[in-house]
């Protein structure tokens, strides 16, 4: 086998296996900041193990869609993860225009998750689905604007090449990339249902977005949903970490160090956001997302005209 394929498989496995750990770290840091001891870092693994051993219960009114959707969701997220470059290794799937496939394959997962939520026929799920679809609508432009602007500046059209084109030679380019990374962070917060947009720990169905959509899932289905949620969070984290690729050019060891440090920093930021901010009103979330898009537009405008 080709060395590149082996590297791709290894990085995909790393992404899949380490994803729950990252969520554990975020939760732990958040607990520390609010003065609690918090669950152990490996708690997400235990949760997954527990869910895997449970009986699967489906709602009485549900159809084949809610049985099929968790599987599709999981597969789609893994395919998206396979497109993600970890460090300087070529990802398993990489071709010209794969950023479009990346965004749309996550869209596939979302489509079926929304349908599965509506499948139950309960108003709770319906509400969650309506919110998810609204916010996803405004989140998609952020991704295209930030990643797309780097792509257009570098002339590349695959995630691997886009991240490879980031360099440290030019100060205005560095400002450009930093602001792009801010947009991506705001996107990650939205897509992974984190604090200013969605409260992962809320206990009232009416205030949930993502959690309420999987309210009636259990056992194996919930296991798949949870696991794909962890992987999704980690995917966006890696998208963010990859902006710091140029610092780790020397060796794998330096890169691994940087990877861990940045991951911790992001976990800290996410935990911090969840500690110090409160959730926005549902009405204001599209504005928050539009703001992130506006940053992307401004950034690209300014970068283009300073050349």
């Amino acid at each position: 086998m080709d060395i590149e394929i082996i590297q791709g498989i290894i990085s995909l496995l790393l992404l899949i296996l380490l994803a729950p750990l990252f969520s554990g770290v975020v939760n732990k840091l958040k607990a520390k900041m609010t003065g609690r001891i918090g669950a152990p870092v490996l708690q997400p693994y235990y949760e997954l193990k527990r869910l895997f051993r449970k009986e699967t219960i489906n709602a009485s009114n549900s159809s084949f869609i809610s049985r099929f959707s968790p599987i599709l969701n999981f597969v789609a997220v893994i395919i998206a993860a396979a497109m993600l470059p970890v460090g300087f290794w070529k990802p398993l799937i990489s071709f010209n225009g794969d950023i479009i496939l990346f965004a749309y394959i996550l869209g596939l997962a979302r489509f079926f998750q929304i349908l599965a939520a509506m499948d139950i026929g309960s108003s709770f799920e319906g509400m969650g689905a309506a919110r998810e679809v609204t916010f996803a609508l405004f989140a998609e432009p952020i991704f295209f604007f930030t990643i797309g602007s780097i792509a257009f500046v570098s002339g590349a059209a695959s995630l691997y090449e886009i991240y490879h084109s980031i360099h440290l030679d030019n100060i205005s380019y560095m400002v450009f990339v930093v602001i792009c990374s801010i947009s991506i962070f705001m996107l990650a917060v939205t897509e992974c249902s984190r604090m200013p947009v969605d409260d992962p720990n809320t206990h009232l169905e009416l205030t949930m977005i993502h959690e309420v959509m999987i309210l009636d899932n259990s056992g194996f289905d919930l296991f798949l949903y949870q696991y794909s949620g962890y992987i999704k969070l980690f995917i966006y984290t890696v998208l963010e970490i990859s902006f710091f690729n140029p610092f780790g050019k020397e060796s794998y060891l330096v890169y691994a160090g940087i990877f861990i440090v940045i991951a911790f920093a992001l976990a800290f930021l996410l935990g911090m956001a969840e500690t110090i901010t409160s959730r926005y009103r549902m009405k204001n979330i599209p504005q928050y997302l539009l703001f992130a898009t506006a940053i992307g537009i401004l950034n690209l405008l300014i970068f283009t005209f300073t050349q």
Partner: peptide
């Protein structure tokens, strides 16, 4: 895998959550 899981850990149908 899902079929195997249902065989081993069981699966059933129940009413949806409505508080």
């Amino acid at each position: 895998v899902k079929l195997w899981h249902h065989k081993k850990y069981g699966s059933r149908v129940s009413g949806a959550w409505a508080c």
